[in-house]
Design a protein around this nucleic acid. Structure first.
Length: 595
RNA sequence: GAUUCCGUAGCUCAGUUGGAUAGAGCAACAGAUUUCUAAUCUGUCGGUCGUGAGUUCGAAUCUCGCCGGGAUCACCA
């Protein structure tokens, strides 16, 4: 079937050319869904045409409406309100659409064709010195959802994770464990590995702060105190040993990493995220030096007297940026350059998307600019999906100050709340304990994931731990509930041998509204893919579900005695169910068949 | 100081390339269950879209100023 928007747009252009005898080249026809309070399905805004038509907006709209009604079979009627031309689409069009779609469980989900674009998506990228918190959760959920949306829009996606497993912060945890850990392990303590490491990171910070306080009290300046700090000195020493490959240090590092990764795996599994390839900074941090050499040769970079290497970006409205320290060691930018180039050699991709917080906008701006200046064509496909911070009522989360919402704790609390709510509603008489546990997880995580994903990624968002995440209204469980009701209808239809068939020639206004909404799904996926915004999908699914719940309330389905109407409604319900299922799948949210 | 993002109902958020009388949820209040799952549905209340100008047939949306808030600008990552 041809897209209805194209049909309207093309015929409107022809109408202008034919009625007013002017060229309609280059005209864009703005088509929007007709507002509920007016009659019609789609609306054309005619104001932009009046300079061409030399007539008033109302007369123009009338002329066009008359033409479209006469010439286009799908357009049944029209009406004009001010400069707005409201078009009524033939019900047969929507009935045909339903016939073609209702039994398609994959509705909306495209499969990548040969020659589809390949997009590499980097997300998650945790540090190995502490467990994941709510900010990481947002990152991971956006990553998961974006990867699925890009795939559903017909792209191939390579999901990668760049784990920050080296540097001074890991040494802090290692040092604290060595000093005060007394051989504690995840087994001996019963703690999840990442939480155990996090405990020592906090312990380091606590002792370091005490040490600083003492030094300051002894009359030292802050700057001197930082240099004199024995703890920090030991941590730096440990980093040097690590870089030198000292066996004892490396062994300790490896052992503690094993703990952290075991912990991360549990969290990732619970969230439902996965990766095609995991990069480790311990293996990439030396990359990039040859890129710097190359840039020096090309004259893109320059060397200062002390030997440090820079790029001057003042002409681009940015500053000078260091690329190699005077002692020849790498900085963050060096390794990101190296990593990007080595990825482009390993994989052939059209796009490279970094899902990283908006605090690093400047960094990526510079990174992409340098890659372009070095002449890498693929640099034009680089994009920083810059998402906003998750804030608490008192402001930003800070790991060291303990004002973080831990990912594991939060998920477990959500699941517990789901259990309590479900039990209070008395809904699960004939569930065995395994089914019940699965349901609590589905609902609890559904509430959390939807809560996060319905917000535009670019914007910062607020999470108030004191107010639990809702299960009613514009929420994950609301959508899941609607899906479960549809499944229940389908089961009943099956038991009674009721068919879903389309033998009608008429549908109600509500049914048409639902079908138009379903029809929009593909467009929403495409928009969500180009704008990297899972929130568009989330809000779309909510709107559809809201419509469907009104329908469910007002129209009997199984109870309907007229066979044709009953079959029609079963078919519509099934189609809506598929869209809910697929839409939520795009968000990485499971839907239950019963709840 | 420079760059940049944000400001929509009491709270949390939608609002497509500028389009009709700015929408949801939560909270508050009032209703709906002899009927397919009430985690639902219906209604009431709630707005100078931070503010002042400009652009035009038309501005929450574009431009400029101002007010308020955040982020970034290190031989940190």
């Amino acid at each position: 079937m041809k897209s209805i928007e194209n049909l309207i747009s093309e015929n409107t252009k022809q109408a202008i050319a034919s009625i007013y005898n002017v060229s309609s080249d280059g005209i864009t026809v703005t088509i929007q869904p007709t507002r509920k309070e007016f009659e019609g399905d789609f609306t054309i805004v005619v104001f932009p045409f009046t300079p061409l038509t030399k007539k008033g907006p109302e007369q123009t709209a009338k002329d066009l409406g008359e033409y479209l009604k006469r010439e286009v079979a799908e357009i049944e009627d029209y009406n004009v309100i001010k400069g707005f031309l409201n078009l009524v689409i033939n019900k047969a069009y929507w009935i045909d659409f339903l016939k073609a779609s209702w039994s398609n469980k994959e509705y909306g989900i495209a499969k990548p064709a040969d020659g589809a674009n390949t997009i590499m998506l980097e997300y998650s990228s945790p540090n190995t010195n502490k467990p994941l918190h709510l900010g990481h959760v947002r990152n991971n959920l956006i990553g998961l959802a974006t990867s699925r949306i890009l795939e559903a829009a017909g792209n191939k996606v390579i999901k990668v994770n760049l784990v920050n497993d080296r540097g001074i912060h890991i040494c802090k945890s290692m040092l604290a464990w060595k000093k005060w850990g007394d051989g504690e392990t995840p087994e001996s303590s019963g703690m999840k590995g990442d939480h155990l490491i996090g405990k020592y990171y906090v312990l380091f910070d606590k002792n370091y702060k005490q040490e600083m306080k003492d030094l300051l009290a002894a009359g030292m300046s802050e700057e001197d105190a930082e240099k004199k700090s024995a703890l920090m000195g030991e941590a730096r020493e440990m980093l040097l040993k690590w870089e030198a490959g000292d066996k004892e240090t490396i062994d300790l590092w490896k052992m503690m990493n094993t703990w952290v990764y075991a912990g991360f795996d549990v969290t990732y599994k619970m969230l439902g995220v996965s990766f095609d390839k995991i990069y480790y900074e311990s293996q990439t941090y030396l990359l990039g030096k040859e890129i710097v050499a190359e840039g020096l040769e090309k004259g893109v970079f320059f060397k200062k007297q002390d030997g440090s290497v820079w790029i001057d970006l003042t002409a681009d409205g940015l500053d000078e940026k260091v690329l190699l320290r005077s002692d020849g060691t790498s900085v963050y930018m060096t390794q990101d350059l190296g990593t990007a180039v080595s990825r482009s050699q390993e994989f052939k991709f059209n796009g490279l998307v970094y899902i990283v917080g908006n605090e690093q906008e400047y960094h990526f701006k510079v990174l992409f600019l340098i890659l372009k200046k070095l002449g890498y064509a693929w640099a034009n496909g680089c994009f920083h999906l810059s998402y906003g911070m998750v804030e608490l009522p008192e402001g930003k989360m800070k790991s060291r100050e303990g004002t973080v919402v831990d990912a594991d704790d939060l998920m477990n609390e959500m699941i517990k709340t789901a259990e309590e709510t479900t039990k209070a509603l008395g809904k699960i008489q004939n569930f065995d304990s395994e089914e019940a546990a699965k349901l609590y997880k589905t609902i609890g995580l559904g509430a959390l994931k939807y809560f996060i994903l319905k917000v535009d990624p670019k914007k910062k968002m607020l999470f108030n731990p004191k107010e639990s995440i809702d299960f009613e209204g514009n929420t994950g469980p609301f959508i899941q509930y609607t899906y479960a009701r549809i499944c229940s209808l389908q089961n009943k239809a099956k038991e009674l041998n009721y068919a879903a068939e389309i033998n009608v020639t008429d549908i109600s206004k509500k049914e048409k509204e639902i079908l138009i909404k379903v029809y929009e799904f593909n467009k929403i996926i495409a928009e969500a893919a180009t704008s990297y915004s899972p929130a568009l999908v989330a809000n779309y699914v909510y709107e559809l579900v809201k419509e469907y719940n009104q329908y469910y309330h007002d129209y009997p389905v199984i109870k309907e005695e007229n066979v044709d109407l009953r079959s029609l409604r079963i078919a519509i319900s099934q189609l809506v169910g598929s869209v809910i299922h697929n839409g939520m799948w795009l968000l990485g949210i499971d839907v239950p068949e019963r709840m």
